[in-house]
Amino acid sequence: MKVLIIEDEKTLAYEMEAFLKKAFYLCDMAHTFKDALEMLGINQYDFILIDLGLPDGDGLDILKQTKKHNPEAACIILTARGNLEDKVIGLDLGADDYLAKPFYLLELQSRMQAVARRKFNINVELLALGEFNIDLQKRLVLHPTAEIELSKKEFDVLSYLLLNKNRVLTRMQLSEHIWGTYADDDYDSNYIDAHIKNIRKKLNVFGTTDWLETVRGVGYRIKHR
């Protein structure tokens, strides 16, 4: 997958590149509006990450250009403006997703995966997890003997861990993914722990959940294959 990162904050762009490289994305970077248009003219991309606040132009104009020259690319808007209108206009102009800064790189990558699944029609079949099977589409946890009912949030936690398997997810990354950016008054809560406890309790009735690891002080990880 080829990605163009359009971001005027070079440090941030490099961090995004470093993170995405590990997930085997090929990254190009553009730090100005002008560079971005040039690169879009030369290359074709699968993903274009557009920062709206560029010093020499409006990111929304890049989005329009992309839709002309590289229509099959998936576009994700990144912005610190946090302006609700931008979100609406961006999605109207054909952006596939919208992320407000500051975001976790893991969240960005997960959104890209989700967009890819949708856009490139990658059919996710049942994901095997020990004795269990997870149906992401129908949001079900299946065991040969039964269908296990998880609450909405519990399923979100489990599937997020599974989609990022073999990687330690911090409580903060999980919280932000599950609860989004509601201006929560708590900055050090253990609510994720309660969910994990419930998931284990519900699944342990049917089989072992030793694939779901607690990483002391850091967070959780699904270790699998």
Binding site: E9, T11, L12, E15, M16, A18, F19, K22, A80, R81, G82, K101, P102, F103, Y104, L105, L106, R167, V168, T170, Q173, V218
Partner: peptide, 20 residues
């Protein structure tokens, strides 16, 4: 608040990469 978002973004990404 807005101007803080970019530096926070950078720091957060750096730590995330560091942890990975």
């Amino acid at each position: 608040s807005h101007e803080l978002m970019t530096p926070i973004s950078i720091l957060q990404s750096k730590m995330e990469n560091l942890l990975a």
